[in-house]
């Protein structure tokens, strides 16, 4: 009887724990699915909208890293810097 009582009190605890683990794993899976949905369907669809398409084409053609955070991470900044330095140092003469 005693053994049975112990089993009865442990069982609900185990099932609660299992349910919690399942809930957590389901949450993780749902997040992964949402990211995949955004990355492979919503994002590409957004790129094709008339409002975004022109700038997306420029980014793709020129290979711009539009998601970088500092000037040293974007190649165009180096191009701009050297061009501007030389424009200031060797400006075309006045007409």
């Amino acid at each position: 009887m005693k053994r049975c009582g112990v089993a009865m009190t442990i069982m609900p605890r185990i099932s609660e724990k299992t349910a919690d683990v399942v809930k957590r794993l389901a949450g993780l899976l749902a997040c992964i699915l949402a990211i995949a949905l955004f990355m492979f369907y919503i994002g590409p669809a957004l790129e094709q909208t008339p409002a975004l398409k022109p700038i997306m084409q420029v980014i793709d053609e020129r290979g711009i890293n539009a998601n970088m955070y500092f000037y040293t991470e974007v190649e165009e900044f180096s191009e701009a810097n050297i061009n501007m330095n030389n424009t200031m140092a060797y400006p075309p003469r006045s007409p």
């Binding site: 420029v58 711009i64 955070y69 000037y71 974007v74």
Partner: peptide, 26 residues
């Protein structure tokens, strides 16, 4: 805010806009 976005927005207009935008951001 972000430098990469400045490069993209500048390049969309012209090289001149890109160079000025990037230099000001830098």
């Amino acid at each position: 805010d972000a430098t990469g976005a400045v490069a993209a927005a500048g390049a969309f207009l012209s090289d001149k806009a890109l160079y000025v935008a990037a230099t000001v951001k830098m």
